[in-house]
Write a protein that binds this DNA or RNA. Sequence first.
DNA 1: CGCAAAGTTGAGCGTCCTCAAGCAGCGTGG
DNA 2: CCACGCTGCTTGAGGACGCTCAACTTTGCG
Lengths: 254, 254
Amino acid sequence: MMTATSTAAARARTPSAQPAAGRHEVAERIAGTLQLLQDHVAITRRIVRAGDSVYEAGERFGMLHVINSGFFKTINLAADGREQVVGLHFKGDWLGFDGIAAGQYGCDAVALDTGEVWSIRYDALLAACARHPQLLGVLHQAMSREITRDRDSLLSLCTLSADARVADFLRYWADAMAQRGLRHDQITLRMTRAEIGNYLGMTLETVSRALTRLSREQLIAFPERGRRDVQIPDVQALGAYVQRSLAPASTTLQ
Amino acid sequence: MMTATSTAAARARTPSAQPAAGRHEVAERIAGTLQLLQDHVAITRRIVRAGDSVYEAGERFGMLHVINSGFFKTINLAADGREQVVGLHFKGDWLGFDGIAAGQYGCDAVALDTGEVWSIRYDALLAACARHPQLLGVLHQAMSREITRDRDSLLSLCTLSADARVADFLRYWADAMAQRGLRHDQITLRMTRAEIGNYLGMTLETVSRALTRLSREQLIAFPERGRRDVQIPDVQALGAYVQRSLAPASTTLQ
DNA sequence: CGCAAAGTTGAGCGTCCTCAAGCAGCGTGG
DNA sequence: CCACGCTGCTTGAGGACGCTCAACTTTGCG
């Protein structure tokens, strides 16, 4: 199906969903980055609350931002008013790369709950990079990771059914938590169904139905009355569910 | 609709589809970049033919690549064999950013026809950037543009109907040609319907039907027998078509 | 010339969207 | 304190857009 070159699966790269590998590596990388910034660059710390924006589309670019804590979304705006959640961002992620080329930010970066961002003047950062090449490496890796993640989003969006996309979304969030040493057996979705749906390219009703189906299949559970908290007994089972939905019938064949 | 904050249209950033503005700027920027590379970095030139890959997923990262001529696609591979065209690339675009963070490329970069790529060792580039800060600026802008474009793809994918997506795809391609001073009233699609469909998140049949409908509406025409060449009498009309399909009925209301 | 690959078109169907109703949580004010 | 309204969430019924399957045509190449 699709434009498969038949050997695709055989030579596929290391899975982006590597189950538990590299948890500590990520946490350490983030700690190292934050330390590096603290030591060599002038930082402006800022506490944000849910709904606060770090920057907005059209604003003149001058700073990059690093998340020290909290959860953020980036929203792309089209000239005609369409808006699209294009990214979710956690501790250690950078915000604002989209502004470098255009000289102004291309999207809104909004806090999903209370958190702290470190803002760094781009020119000061470049100057610091000149003195500490390690810092430049960190910066480039962050941009590279951003590109990779955006493409993974495209892949999920185009190849997965609505239910699988929701499962993949939960898996992605839980993985991000696990990698950062945060609680990941139970996550609190800080987005409304409408926001999740927007991010995943579906309506809020479809999100709701998908969550209901996933909980019927015991892949997730809602411990509280308010269904914002999602319990994930087994993250790998979510990945398996995604795989299963790719091969509707022929799983055991061959 | 969606999660519109009602003022979205009012404060939307400058349109990503700025009609004809900045054509020469882009061509000049590209010429400047190529000159800069030529002057200060060791370059390996390579001629590629349709189907040749510049790099493949999983390959060890060590080089970045700049397109001197030709057309390229990047294909993302999932561990399970799903594959997805995640980007189209033209003269002046960079290839390989996705490899920086992981140490290995995360996708395939494949030539869509004959072209020339310049390959540059990443470490040598960084060394050159240290001597010529201007080069670093160019590099960052290219990465930033890549991020912006991926997000624009996400936006189109999530908010547009199949027909509008095809129209937007043609508009995007024509714009890219125009910006580079290439012929843009008639473009030659160097991809099969299946590839276009994969890129746009739809089947090849839907692509075919969309093209038929667009030609019925006189927005495009097929000058040759083989329907690979697409004539676009008025690029702006394609943009208008996309807008129209967003507001099914209420265009003149309010 | 003949075969394989690419493309077009049609019919039927399924997934997801639309529209609608009802419920739950929560802050406000009478 | 509870009615009230608001926002967010769930669930159902019906319909549409796009997918699947299939037949046929066209193009390109050995």
